[in-house]
């Protein structure tokens, strides 16, 4: 029961805090800009009389750029909204009045975690939905395997959220933010190195990329998600944030899932053991 109350409070808090609305406004502004860009691109296609196959591939490529941008927005918003959820309440003492109620510590933590999941999933759905809708209305193209790709983006954001919570149970708000964004940055760089390694046939570089993905698998989830949603022609691009020359395997996805579960378990354990 306490768990659901905390989920509800977290959602209500999100709705009343400025950061979520700023995130939404940023998202809407991006979609407006993106739609305008796509509109002029399509207009140019008509003027140049490009063959439908090329048109399809280019619009598909533009869609990948859109997904990439909203994925980044979603990751940043996930970290910014949740980074003080635990550490901030501990340092301000807000948690004292709550943790002394008949609610277990794990219920408090999971309740909040679920609230943020609902918010993140809602945001990703809205933003990806926006990009897909624009692609369909303006460009007449629907990306492939949306239902296989978008859940992986959910998983990526939930993983980031869980690591933020884990840091929040033992670090300050600022330190948590630095660690989570640092880890995601490491994974991002590792992803590039892995792709360059794959393209240049350099197994050592690939290994560096794989190790960084093992340290933080968030970027692997994104790369697998975009790989799923690409057209076969885009997949054949050598590399890049939308390239699939070395898309993470299914084993990596399972690893990321296990990583998330273990991180959550450690967060619960830490939070249960620590003094408030």
């Amino acid at each position: 029961m306490g768990l659901w109350i905390m989920t509800g409070v977290t959602l209500r808090e999100a709705a009343r805090k400025r950061i979520l609305w700023i995130g939404l406004l940023a998202g809407i502004a991006f979609l407006a800009l993106y739609g305008t860009g796509m509109h002029y691109q399509v207009k140019e296609f008509h003027e140049r009389h490009l063959p439908p196959f090329i048109r399809y591939q280019i619009i598909n490529g533009i869609l990948q750029v859109g997904f990439y941008a909203v994925d980044l927005l979603a990751v940043v918003l996930t970290v910014l909204t949740s980074v003080d959820a635990i550490s901030g309440e501990i340092s301000s003492g807000t948690i004292h009045a709550i943790a002394t109620k008949p609610i277990r510590r794990w219920e408090l933590l999971i309740g909040k975690w679920m609230g943020f999941i609902a918010m993140t999933v809602g945001y990703v759905t809205l933003m990806f939905g926006g990009v897909v809708a624009l692609g369909y209305w303006i460009g007449g193209v629907v990306p492939q395997n949306l239902l296989r790709g978008v859940p992986l983006v959910f998983l990526e954001c939930i993983l980031i959220l869980t690591i933020t919570f884990l840091c929040g149970t033992s670090l300050s708000t600022l330190a948590s933010g630095v660690v989570v964004l640092g880890l995601h940055g490491l994974a991002f760089l590792g992803g590039w190195l892995e792709q360059i390694g794959g393209f240049t046939n350099s197994p050592r570089l690939v290994m560096v990329g794989i190790v960084s993905s093992l340290i933080m698998p968030s970027e692997s989830l994104w790369r697998r998600a975009i790989f799923e949603m690409q057209s076969p022609a885009t997949r054949s691009l050598p590399f890049g944030p939308f390239g699939g020359s070395s898309a993470p395997s299914a084993v990596m996805i399972v690893y990321a899932g296990a990583y998330l579960v273990v991180a959550l378990a450690i967060a619960i354990y830490h939070f249960h053991k620590r003094d408030l």
Binding site: V9, E13, R16, K17, S92, G93, T94, H96, A97, T100, K101, P102, I103, R104
Partner: peptide, 19 residues
């Protein structure tokens, strides 16, 4: 945890969700 159902607490420098 159950005993807290019968306990009330006013912390020093009371802070709560100010929204």
């Amino acid at each position: 945890v159950g005993v807290r159902r019968k306990i009330g607490f006013l912390p020093e420098d009371f802070r709560f969700y100010d929204w």
